[in-house]
Design a protein around this nucleic acid. Sequence first.
DNA 1: ATGAAAGCGCTAACAT
DNA 2: ATGTTAGCGCTTTCAT
Lengths: 348, 348
Amino acid sequence: MISEHRRSRPTLALVAKEAGVSIGTASNILSGKTELHTPETVEMVLSVARRLGYRPNRIARSLVARQTHTIGVIMEPAHTVFTRNIYATGVMDGLVDVLGAQGYHLKIISLMEIDPRTLWAQIDDGTIDGAVLLVPLIGSPLLEWHQHTPLPCVVVGSVFPESMGFYCVDADSQQGIRKVVEWLTQQGHREIGFLRGPEVQTSALQREAAFRETLQAHGIAVREEWILGNSYHREGGYEAMRALLQLPKRPSAVVCANDLIALGAIEACREQGVSVPHEISITGFDDIPIAGLVDPPLTTIRNPIHEIGYHAGEALLEQIRTGEPKRGVRLFSGELIVRASVRRLKTG
Amino acid sequence: MISEHRRSRPTLALVAKEAGVSIGTASNILSGKTELHTPETVEMVLSVARRLGYRPNRIARSLVARQTHTIGVIMEPAHTVFTRNIYATGVMDGLVDVLGAQGYHLKIISLMEIDPRTLWAQIDDGTIDGAVLLVPLIGSPLLEWHQHTPLPCVVVGSVFPESMGFYCVDADSQQGIRKVVEWLTQQGHREIGFLRGPEVQTSALQREAAFRETLQAHGIAVREEWILGNSYHREGGYEAMRALLQLPKRPSAVVCANDLIALGAIEACREQGVSVPHEISITGFDDIPIAGLVDPPLTTIRNPIHEIGYHAGEALLEQIRTGEPKRGVRLFSGELIVRASVRRLKTG
DNA sequence: ATGAAAGCGCTAACAT
DNA sequence: ATGTTAGCGCTTTCAT
């Protein structure tokens, strides 16, 4: 016997030998090209493979095929935490749904530190066929993607100018904020403040811009001192609201760039003895699971996050299949969820 | 020129050629074994690699090294949904933290349908060095792991008898339930019901068993009609509580197998006009983010989920490194979080 | 219908 | 110190 049976998994060569056929024949049959061979050979090879518990080595297959059937999900250091990132988990769900159905797997590439020297070697190392950039931040080295790797990619949760060459999928911040603001005006509010998200997130910038535009479109003056905050977290909302409440003149309603901010804002109000929505109305954005359960339940925008992830996955697969890069923006509109955190003002 | 410059990524051979050294030399230098060569050669190779934008192909490397630096996270079909699975996301966070720091990546293997014929080929295909079985269910084909693959693995979120050969990491259900029940008895409760989780989850079984044991240990009779339910979801808790409230004689307190059940139970009470905790006390388990925000805030057990994931990752890496399979059980105890959903009964 | 052989990009053992 | 070579397990021509 020339090669000793090692304790390792059976290889194609072993199966071929045991079945008394060549490696090429075994390969064909085991990868489904059974029509090339006689039924007897097919049956023979298949049964030997079964008996030996043969499982094809995808690594070897990938080396020659130059594709891995794996998609990378790239997260910036700040986003690493799934637990606190409902957006990320929702998108992941959508991705798993499409990609899983198509035989693709997900690889989580969570950048611990973003060192431009090793970054691209980490990402484009031959182990993924494409990537989803999960909420890349403004100024991130990830945005130099196309200069460093030809790998197909899709941006989710951030929206960049088309000139950067990405295909971006996200919730429609502008439309969402417009819906919220218009609802407030319909409820008689004309003194409206805004609690911002972090300036490194495109969505935060877009939400603020949409807020300003909508006010102006309705002939309402934007009061700069009522626009504050710079975080998507609860603590940020809390701090911003505290600052707002110090002001000599308060708005009658406050639009928050997301639900967590709104939660923090409500907390600040409670602490200061300011009743929501009696003395001040508050709105959120995202409709996270808690939104309907807090006191008062939050009026907010519900975004189709799962659908966003699903569509991003489809778009990525399309690029991988066709080899054609795709660019542009695809926005998904959300739905206004009216709850009790906004009070109807008596007009006149 | 013999081989044409293809538009593909530079390979080691190209770098070697351009640098005027052999492929072996280039390999050594680019994988850090610089001490084997003269500083000039090293510098030469490194600079060529940089100029060409060379990135090593991990697939090729993995083929020869037989290791991929990737860990599979295996989820049963039912668990696929991250959004609804706070446990899973928490564990993932812990895993990402350890594994990322050690240069390992995570591959999500979300079993769409669990077909025993293709299952092992899907999992043990050479693309992962080990696996985390995320809350495998009782009766799952995954439990035949050791008969089908030699891959190191760790079970998280379920606890199986040691005879099955797994290393299991989870929250200590028994201790947690005991703490809750003892807290209730300290508050004067002696008529206590239990809302169960699904019977396919080991944790659900263990929580129920712990409930029964603790009651008995305190000389309290277990009333079977007060033990009902079979789901970890809110709807399950709602239904079970509705059924419980129909009973002619109600307990003064109800222990729920997790927080979602408790939330559903509170909802059912509210609907039936039964005040919590005034007429009936309710406890949860897990301390999910909403737990402290609902009305009334939930008395519950907070488990160190992140730590569980972290430890599971460490244990897996250890097995991969040493090659020694590990078995046994590692339980992490939770902390009783006292909030307002339990009322102190007047004794006597 | 089947077999032989080249090679995917890399590492490691062995020569020189 | 550097070069040469034999694989890793598979797919894919190209002969036969």
